[in-house]
Design a binder for these strands. Structure first.
Lengths: 247, 247
DNA sequence: GAAATAGTGTCTATCAGACATTATGGC
DNA sequence: GCCATAATGTCTGATAGACACTATTTC
């Protein structure tokens, strides 16, 4: 039994005992953090402080630290805490991108996670410039470093397809929200209007929300009932696709 | 700009110029290859020829080769050719597993792909013992090395959930097949009987198959019309979930 | 003709979409 | 009262599931 050596000298010793160790790709973790602001889907981007593509806008993330990170997901959570100061209500592994030529440093592998959260919860407190950028279609109005535009497009597609049959949009809202706000969130992401009656029937059937006796008042019109997500851990799925048959 | 050095000595030179290079996890690719044999879902397993867990049964795969593999997917295709002698009709990235303790060698990251193919197309020609093992539920009747039981369970779950709304089961059959055979494939994987009329209506609506003027004869009963998958590249989806409302 | 399997037709309960109607607040 | 928005009620076309029926082969 042999363990990965933590010092280069030990690694060389292992290499002599067991033959040449394989060269490894540089391994990084990146994050696609979505939120809703001002009726638009936004993604968190940072200005790269290091090479490669220093100064370009990019997805937050960085190199895995074998000493601090027990797992890839732990690394993603650490970077989320560093970049956004939060433990996100929803985190899911998206995909791993790895090739010889996606990064000028050479062979890299990057596991990408995507997170959903209410923008109010985020503390942009990193040491680098960071900000929310509106998503239009499946892209952003900036040139992104490396293959990050492609990664973002994949993440947006995954978000949309998951919204068709799951409840995960609630994680984009604060803990208390109204049904019209939730419906609006779906409409923003799916980019199409939804029927109010059908939407509420669907949400009610999933029985994933509970009413809060208080009320929310708007600038005009009848106040809307506040709701809370019933069980943050339970996975609720809609029995049918939401928007595939929409007008 | 610096590239990953291919020789340890060059790597050291780079390290001196740019500060300490981060330690990297060992990066491997593993495959979950499914097929249907004798009315059962089977997965391809190999007996490990190397440490760790030498002699145990495990998913096929191995360490990424920075020199030969241009990308992670290219590595998966190379290993598929080595283990099963085929370019598979369906290959999809499943997930990446990475942690300090999932492998006695220390920190490893493993990107897992899952493939579907007709068992007739597979040439078990590797240099190691390999064979098809029946899947019961979401596991196999053997103890698997490392965390491969968990990986297999995740792959079976993904296969099942994808079958609910996609056509991918056709890739488990030979190029020409009958509708009863396709339906049987769905029933085997979903582990529940499906209504013949509803199934055929669904397949017809997706218009993903075309008839072949020839016929297949069985041991008994009326011969069934042979069909062919219309477009191997097009992605066809069913408008509604298949079995969620089944009896 | 009987058995076995392939393939089609029909009925019905369900339900998503559409849209009308009612409810409740501010002004 | 008027406006704006929230929330509910009702109608209808579409369809998945259930199952009966017909078709075509072997024995």
């Amino acid at each position: 039994m042999c363990a990965i050596a933590s010092e280069p000298s030990e690694a060389s010793a292992v290499r002599r005992r067991e033959g040449p160790l394989p060269e490894k790709p540089l391994f990084t973790v990146e994050l696609v953090i979505f939120t809703i602001r001002a009726d638009r889907l936004h993604v968190l981007l940072v200005e790269r402080a290091d090479q490669p593509r220093k100064g370009w806008w990019a997805l937050p993330g960085g190199v895995l630290d074998l000493r601090r990170d027990d797992s890839i997901e732990a690394c993603a959570l650490r970077k989320l805490a560093e970049e956004a100061g939060v433990h996100p209500p929803y985190l899911e592994q998206l995909k791993t991108y790895g090739s010889r030529d996606r990064d000028p440093r050479g062979w890299t592998a990057t596991t990408v996670y995507f997170a959903l959260m209410a923008s109010e919860r985020v503390q942009l407190g990193g040491n680098q410039a960071a900000g929310w950028v509106a998503v239009q279609g499946d892209r952003v109005g900036l040139d992104l470093a490396l293959d990050h535009a492609r990664i973002l497009a994949d993440a947006v597609e995954r978000l949309r397809s998951k919204l068709e049959y799951s409840h995960i949009a609630v994680h984009l809202l604060p803990e208390e929200f109204t049904l019209p706000e939730l419906q609006r969130t779906y409409e923003i992401i799916l980019q199409q209007p939804l029927d109010k009656s059908s939407f509420r029937r669907r949400v009610a059937q999933a029985s994933m929300l509970e009413e809060i006796p208080g009320k929310l008042r708007d600038g005009s019109g009848r106040p809307a009932q506040l709701h809370r997500f019933r069980d943050y851990d339970r996975r609720t799925f809609f029995p049918r696709s939401i928007s595939r048959h929409a007008r």
